Amino acid sequence: MSDPLQDPRFFANPYPTYAKLRGAAPVQKVPTGSGGRYSYLVTGYAEAREAFADPRLSKNTARFFAGQPSRRDIHPAVSQSMLATDPPEHARLRTLVTRAFTTGAVARMRPYITGLVDTMLDEWPRHGPVDLVASLAVPLPVTVICQLLGVPEADRKSVREWSSELFAAGEPQRADAASHAIAGCMTDLIAAKRARPGEGLIDDLIAVRDGDDRLTEPELVSLAVLLLVAGHETTTNFIGNAALALVQHPDSLRRLREEPELLGGAIDELLRYDSPVGIATFRYSTEALTLGGTEIPAGVPVLIAPGAANRDPARFSEPDRLDLDRDTRAQLAFGHGIHRCLGAPLARAEAEIALRALITRFPGVRPAVPAEELRWRHTRLMRGLESLPLLV
């Protein structure tokens, strides 16, 4: 059996593959990559929620790769980030950055985000197609997170390109090179901030590192890289996916235009319908366990698929239908448990503001090309469009 997650048809539309796999078993052994490698893939909702919170599934990839030769050259700032830690290290690192993404902190950023969106949409042509990904879904979250971290404007285009290459499926050399480029950029930024301190989040982390040594230098660089990449990748994909879902469902689009107060609640259904994270980053079993009736041995990789779990008919009736009245607050697009995306409040705010402006300012917005001509990113981790041509 070939790797079902590398088929070109999977990138264009993963949901038939997810449904077929889930129909066979909510947790099963699947080939991943070449050379006889395999992982256990979790596609059922109940099983995914359980797996996200199971301490026997470790995120500390270093302990599993210790002593094993590797053909990869991923910078440690990427391969050994906070995402690849377990308690208590994970809690220590997460606590240092959580306050920047609280509901209150995000609320204070809403006027800034709204201004950015208005400025970007002011530049849209009033006739002819416009690419929503290139002109809104990419620059908005990149600008916001770069502003939060203090990344110079001159570096922001490169940051986006490197970040995209980190997730290029089947192209390890590109991903490895991008990891070094983005780590180098953050190392240079930290040095510049030390020379000329400011008031950004990076400055706060430097103060922690240089003040009482609660952060090592590699941890400081790794946190900066993680915040930069995670701070925009998911949001970019979500804005594009959500906009596409709405223009493909005119009745839902019309309803949100007539009742814009519903948009806040609709965000969860849009996240469920086409999750911006298809398959979460690797976990490894620290001991043998049984999940969804499947026995998983110790020391093997486990992949949890929020994109599949969010379309599980055992949890959501008619899961392939967009339903703005559905209660989907339990959707798993941002994960679950201690590793749940800490930037979720910021991502939700950016998407809500962007979609509200799109809906209200362009009442005639519609797709500019047929669905089969849309280009999707070739990455199993992220689910996102390369471009979304719209007529406004």
Rank of each mutant, 00 (worst) to 15 (best):
P197R: 01
L132Y: 09
L220E: 06
D327R: 15
A230F: 04
G104K: 14
P367Q: 02
S222F: 02
A12H: 12
A371V: 15
K157M: 15
R257G: 01
A62T: 07
G36I: 09
R126D: 08
H339S: 07
R214Y: 10
L136K: 01
Y45T: 05
V42S: 03
A48E: 15
T290D: 14
R315E: 07
L93R: 04
D176R: 06
L358C: 03
E165Q: 14
K29Q: 08
D3F: 02
N241A: 13
T98Q: 12
V365F: 05
R272V: 02
L342V: 13
G200N: 04
V144D: 01
E217H: 14
T85W: 11
T360Y: 15
D325I: 13
Q68R: 13
N60Y: 15
L93P: 00
T32A: 12
L226C: 10
G170F: 00
D73I: 14
I296H: 02
G211H: 14
A53P: 01
A137V: 07
T236E: 13
L148F: 01
V138M: 15
D155M: 11
S317I: 07
L149K: 06
K29G: 06
M109P: 03
V221A: 12
S317L: 12
R340Y: 13
P125V: 09
R196V: 12
L220S: 07
K59I: 11
G292M: 04
M109H: 06
V225S: 03
R383E: 00
D131V: 07
G299Y: 13
E199D: 13
E372N: 10
E287S: 13
L21H: 09
A330L: 04
R160M: 02
A245P: 00
A168N: 02
A62H: 09
H180E: 03
T294M: 05
C185V: 09
W124L: 06
L322G: 02
V221K: 06
A309G: 12
P367A: 04
T143C: 11
E259P: 12
A288G: 10
E171M: 01
M109V: 08
L346W: 09
A333M: 02
C146W: 05
D131H: 13
R361I: 03
L189E: 02
